[in-house]
Design a protein around this nucleic acid. Structure first.
Length: 340
DNA sequence: CAACCGTGGTG
DNA sequence: TCACCAAGGTT
């Protein structure tokens, strides 16, 4: 097919000169590519880079990761968000270590079975880590493809995604899969941007239907989102000399498995009577992707921490300097840093 | 399958 | 200021 070679040739040639070829996880092992791909889900390169270095420094190999524990993995992930990704990375490292003798499998069916690896990431690993045919359908690529086709149906509908996937298969090259996949993402990130794309610099503008019809600013089409739910949280910061009290979050919702402050309703009057020197901290508002949190925190100081009866399994008294290095979400870190 | 799951940047 | 966006997967 004529159009087949047109797209892949243009993308590959463009990537070699204009693409991103000095990212910290490129030209390294499949392990590095895997960690970067998970971190980059719904997250920008600029945000990921320092976390990537920190993570690889803490866990230089799949073996070291598999032999570590979830608390240490979450400590390295703290602040990056979507913490289930960290849990799945840990789970998958164990599977790779035990079932695949420490090597990431290089076929789609085995990759897609691993926790945290879906269609797009499996395709990314095949192409970026192994230079084999694999299709990435991330936000960048979906935007490029929907614009090339001038596809005006909502991008989040499965019907649309299947149309894009079909087209992606048609234009996949016969070699240079790594450069091609990187090129598709680079094109989406650098040229075919969400807002005000640089169409004049685009290597495939001559075959882009959106460019021809001047539709690039209205494609891809997105359906409106639900309004954020508002939620109030009441935390209690209790410190004693050099230590602070944290509680493991075992609830189902956000920040699962992370360390938080205990909630106010955990304490009955009997326990509250043991607390001393109360102070109300300034209100913290924190926006998640789907919730708006209003966090009010009361601070207490205990002369003798052993006077407070707490469940030893769910709580921990930690050294204040160590507390900020644990697996904690952003607002907890903020409060610890400002008010401890 | 639509909702859920974080955070930082942007216009 | 705030809604939206960014290398998605799971349920």
């Amino acid at each position: 097919m004529h159009k087949m070679s047109f797209f892949s040739k243009k993308i590959i040639n463009w990537q070699k000169i204009n693409g991103r070829n000095n990212l910290p996880w490129q030209a390294k092992s499949p392990y590095h590519v895997w960690i970067s791909e998970i971190m980059l889900q719904q997250t920008q390169v600029k945000t990921v880079v320092p976390y990537f270095h920190k993570f690889i420094n803490s866990f230089p190999s799949i073996k070291s990761l598999a032999e570590s524990n979830l608390d240490n993995v979450l400590a390295s992930w703290s602040g990056l968000g979507y913490y289930t990704r960290a849990k799945n990375i840990h789970l998958t490292s164990k599977i790779i270590h035990e079932k695949y003798n420490g090597s990431i499998p290089n076929n789609y069916d085995q990759l897609i079975e691993l926790p945290g690896i879906g269609e797009s990431t499996a395709g990314a690993l095949l192409s970026l880590a192994f230079d084999e045919p694999g299709i990435i359908l991330d936000g960048n690529v979906k935007r490029v493809l929907s614009r090339v086709l001038a596809n005006q149906s909502p991008i989040n509908h499965s019907k649309t995604q299947n149309e894009l996937k079909k087209f992606a298969k048609e234009i996949l090259p016969k070699k240079n899969f790594r450069i091609y996949s990187q090129g598709m993402m680079d094109l989406g990130s650098l040229i075919c941007t969400s807002l005000n794309p640089s169409c004049e610099s685009c290597p495939i503008k001559n075959k882009c239907k959106s460019f021809e019809l001047n539709l690039q600013n209205s494609i891809p089409v997105k359906t409106s989102k639900n309004p954020k739910k508002e939620r109030n949280i009441k935390w209690v910061l209790i410190s004693s000399k050099d230590k602070v009290l944290l509680k493991r979050n075992k609830s189902k919702g956000v920040w699962q498995n992370l360390w938080l402050f205990p909630e106010e309703n955990y304490f009955d009057d009997k326990k509250f009577n043991l607390l001393e020197e109360k102070e109300s901290l300034p209100l913290v508002t924190h926006n998640l992707s789907h919730q708006k949190l209003s966090i009010s925190t009361k601070k207490y100081f205990l002369k003798n921490k052993d006077r407070l009866p707490i469940d030893r399994r769910g709580f921990v008294w930690v050294n204040k300097k160590e507390s900020v290095k644990m697996g904690i979400p952003k607002p907890v870190k903020l409060i610890l840093e400002n008010h401890l």
